[in-house]
């Protein structure tokens, strides 16, 4: 991931972050990304977990900033939270200015 996952809470996840997650969290995030949104109960049904275990995995992802939960505890629904993507960040600003305003 290039960064400590705990540092990335505010930025959402980049696709490559998914690959660096522990297996159970990765499966869950990939599934959620395809599906769009799901409750802990739905995730539990999908992965054959008990709902408390599914909620705990979702909360771990939420703590990293990779998903966000909405609704009250009895009807909480989780959504993936992709972050922003930026490449070639290390180029100096002056070079970017020249490229954009030749």
């Amino acid at each position: 991931m290039g960064e400590n996952p705990s540092d990335s809470g505010s930025r959402g996840f980049r696709p490559s972050d998914m690959l660096a997650l522990p297996e159970e969290e990765r499966h869950l995030l990939q599934w959620l990304t395809r599906r769009g949104r799901a409750s802990a109960e739905e995730a539990a049904g999908q992965f054959g977990l008990d709902p408390a275990a599914a909620r705990s995995l979702l909360e771990a992802l939420a703590k990293r900033g990779f998903v966000k939960g909405e609704g009250d505890e009895s009807h909480e629904v989780y959504q993936p939270r992709p972050g922003s993507m930026r490449t070639a960040r290390t180029l100096p600003d002056g070079l970017w200015r020249k490229l954009r305003d030749p």
């Binding site: 959402g12 980049r14 696709p15 990304t33 769009g36 993936p80 939270r81 992709p82 972050g83 922003s84 993507m85 930026r86 490449t87 070639a88 960040r89 180029l91 970017w96 490229l99 954009r100 305003d101 030749p102």
Partner: peptide
């Protein structure tokens, strides 16, 4: 457009927006 290609390389973009855009 050259400036637009370099701008997106420099500034990046919101992954979620691309995902939502496909859907």
């Amino acid at each position: 457009r050259t400036g637009e290609i370099t701008r997106i390389l420099q500034e990046g973009y919101d992954v979620g927006l691309l995902n939502n855009g496909f859907q």
